[in-house]
Amino acid sequence: TTKKKMMMMKNPVILMACIVLLSSLVTSDNTFGPDKCCFQFLHKRLPANRVASIEYTDKRCAMEGVLLKTVAGRQVCADPTMQWVKKILESFQPKNATTPGHEGSE
């Protein structure tokens, strides 16, 4: 009966170890930060005709920013509160559309 008790004690320990391991694997994706963040913004105005595409930074970034890819292939960060950046953002948005990931209040 001592062997049975030892086996019964080992099973819950193994089960708990498996649960902890699986839960750490499932949540490991959330421990990494966003891929692209802005740490400083472009200081001068970029002409709208030089912007090929826009991409918003992840909400988990310390600074909310917009990544502007130029027609030359260079990517720069811009402050979305600046008027010239707002105009560029508007030109890339279809009429009556909301900004992806930025709608509503939080």
Results as ranks from 00 to 15, higher is better:
A17P: 02
G101R: 01
S23Y: 14
K5S: 08
M8Q: 15
H102Y: 14
R60L: 13
K36W: 06
C77K: 03
L15Q: 06
S24D: 02
L89W: 03
M8L: 15
M9D: 13
K36R: 10
K69P: 02
H102V: 08
G33E: 01
C61Q: 04
P80I: 01
I19D: 00
M9T: 10
S105V: 03
A78Y: 01
A78S: 08
L22P: 00
R50E: 15
F92I: 03
T81C: 02
Y56Q: 07
M8W: 15
S91L: 03
V85A: 05
I14G: 06
F41H: 01
I54Y: 02
D58C: 06
V26C: 00
I54H: 07
R74N: 10
T27W: 10
S24A: 09
L25A: 07
A62G: 11
E106L: 09
H102W: 15
T27R: 05
V85W: 00
F39G: 12
P12V: 00
A48D: 11
C61I: 01
M9S: 13
K36G: 08
M7Q: 13
K5V: 09
L21E: 04
M9K: 13
M63S: 14
F39I: 14
A72G: 09
G73P: 01
Q93W: 03
K10F: 13
P34Q: 06
L68S: 03
A48I: 07
T57F: 04
C38A: 05
P12C: 00
F92K: 04
Q83M: 02
V66K: 02
I54R: 06
K69W: 05
D58H: 12
C18N: 05
N49H: 13
G101M: 01
K4M: 11
Q93M: 15
W84P: 11
C61R: 00
N49A: 08
V26H: 00
I19N: 00
T70S: 15
K10D: 04
G73C: 01
F92Y: 04
D58V: 03
A72H: 06
E90T: 09
R60N: 12
P100Q: 10
L46K: 04
M63L: 15
F32A: 12
R50V: 06
I88M: 11
P100A: 08
K3A: 10
P100C: 08
L21R: 06
L22H: 00
N49M: 05
S53M: 05
F32M: 11
A48K: 04
L89C: 10
R74G: 05
L89R: 11
T31A: 12
K69L: 10
A72R: 09
K36T: 13
Q93E: 14
I14S: 08
P100Y: 06
T98F: 10
D35T: 12
A17R: 01
M8H: 11
C18H: 04
T27K: 07
